[in-house]
Design a protein around this nucleic acid. Structure first.
Length: 409
RNA sequence: CGGGGUGUUGUGUAAUGGUAGCGCGCUUGGUUUGGGACCAAGUAGUCAGAGUUCGAGUCUCUGCACCCCGACCA
């Protein structure tokens, strides 16, 4: 994409109200725009990052048998009354239509996916069954905060698994945990993300969260120095030795919850009376798990973890583009290289604007694309183009014909 | 919802109760071209409503919005 055609612009100053690093950088660089507290528009650059994250998650969830669906946001009150959450879930958005009929705006989708499964999954032969979606969730947060880390409307992947036995559920729960670990590895925050034993909130007594260590975190976790499992501060006291290795030596860190997995047992299948006859003709209760992962939060977390005083430093796997091609002064060579990279399916943002070098470099650092390639009279005289990684200081001059080779190295 | 803070052009800021000014951006013209260039000319604003006052960005009240701490949560 040519930067001259990108409708967003970078800003030198962040809006003064924004304190969180993710909001400051994402807004300044033109990834997101704030509409109101906790509600953001994803601009072209931001949407590209979101889609990158989405695709990584999709691949990993497909790999554990997930079938992608898309459920409605607007949901019947009746289903929420059935599970009891209409009156007990205080962050549920309720809307009324002109006739006075009430609806929920989905904060999570058990109330929809359970009746859905019940309708189509009607033999023990259909089990286990896994469905997931990427969806805008609505939660009436008392206080939206921390930029895109805690919104009132946010993008989430939610996976639901249905089982006829505890053993089958447990096996899948572990599989999902592994998939989550892969997702965090692939999106770059693996090293800083800890599986954390935590409260289950409105879903279950306990759950596992995935917590990424960052000063911007809202939670306090106690990481076991022996095995690396963490315990959320909220259940410290109930649980004071590591549930995994029984160790009692912990270090305390601030962290942000990027995902979680729950054992729901029959909590949401029972209200809908979802039962299935097994191969012996015996009626069995369906049990389930749910597995959430906030994409917009993950994106904000990545920014919190990977930035410097000049801007964002995207991990290559989620960067909006792989290459930021910058032409200094007029030269046809940059255009040629751009077309060549496109032909070779390299994702490239071409800064073809008539701006000074300083401005282009500053923008490039702010946007944070992994590879910066500069084409100028100076570089051409020295033998080609200058290439630099965003997370490194050194630049290197390489011949324009060896760019692809260099990028793949 | 409790506590604290802030609302001035797209954005960042200034203005004893007395002419709303500046930087960035944007527009036009010219000069520049390897780390947020320069010159000139333009563009656009006091959150909303009421009140006090000869006069309100500034004081008072009400409302709204945003940010931070807390309670609650992916």
């Amino acid at each position: 994409m040519k930067q001259s055609q990108l409708f967003t612009k970078t800003q030198k100053d962040a809006p003064k109200d924004e304190v969180s690093v993710n909001a400051q950088l994402l807004i300044r660089a033109g990834f997101v725009d704030k509409l109101m507290a906790g509600v953001y528009t994803f601009l072209p650059l931001g949407l590209r990052v979101m889609k990158k994250i989405e695709n990584i998650i999709r691949e990993e969830i497909n790999a554990i048998g997930g079938q992608e669906i898309f459920m409605p946001t607007l949901q019947p009150k009746e289903n929420w009354l059935k599970t009891g959450r209409w009156d007990t879930m205080d962050d549920l958005y309720k809307v009324k239509d002109a006739s006075g009929k009430e609806f929920a705006l989905g904060p999570t989708h058990e109330e929809i996916v359970v009746p859905l499964a019940q309708k189509y999954i009607n033999s023990y032969r259909d089990f286990p069954f896994y469905a997931y979606q990427f969806q805008n969730k609505f939660r009436m947060e008392l206080r939206a905060k921390s930029g895109i880390l805690r919104g009132r409307e946010f993008m989430m992947k939610d996976l639901y698994s249905f089982h006829l036995s505890e053993d089958d559920f447990n096996a899948y729960y572990e599989k999902a945990a592994k998939a989550y670990e892969k997702i965090f590895q692939r999106t770059g925050i693996g090293e800083k993300t800890y599986k954390t034993f935590a409260s289950g909130g409105s879903f279950s007594k306990y759950s596992h969260e995935y917590q990424t260590v960052t000063p911007a975190g809202e939670d306090l976790i106690h990481i076991c120095n022996q095995c690396g499992l963490a315990i959320n501060e909220e259940i410290k006291g109930e649980v004071d030795v590591c549930p995994s290795c029984k160790g009692a030596d912990f270090r305390k860190e601030k962290a942000i919850e990027v995902g979680n997995i729950f054992n729901l047992k029959n909590k949401y299948t029972q209200p809908f009376d979802f039962k299935i006859k097994d191969e012996k003709g015996e009626e069995k209760e369906v049990i389930m798990g749910c597995y959430g992962l906030g994409l917009s939060r993950l994106m904000g977390t990545i920014v919190e973890v990977f930035h410097d005083d000049k801007g964002i430093i995207w991990p290559e796997s989620v960067a909006p583009f792989k290459v930021h091609l910058i032409s200094l002064g007029k030269n046809d060579e940059a255009e040629k290289i751009y077309n060549d990279l496109i032909k070779k399916s390299v994702e490239v943002l071409f800064d073809d604007r008539e701006e000074t070098a300083g401005k282009k470099f500053a923008d490039s650092d702010l946007i944070g694309i992994p590879y910066r390639i500069v084409v100028s009279e100076k570089s051409l005289q020295s033998g080609g183009v200058e290439i630099k990684k965003r997370n490194q200081k050194e630049t290197e001059i390489i011949n324009q014909n060896s760019i692809i080779e260099k990028l793949n190295a």
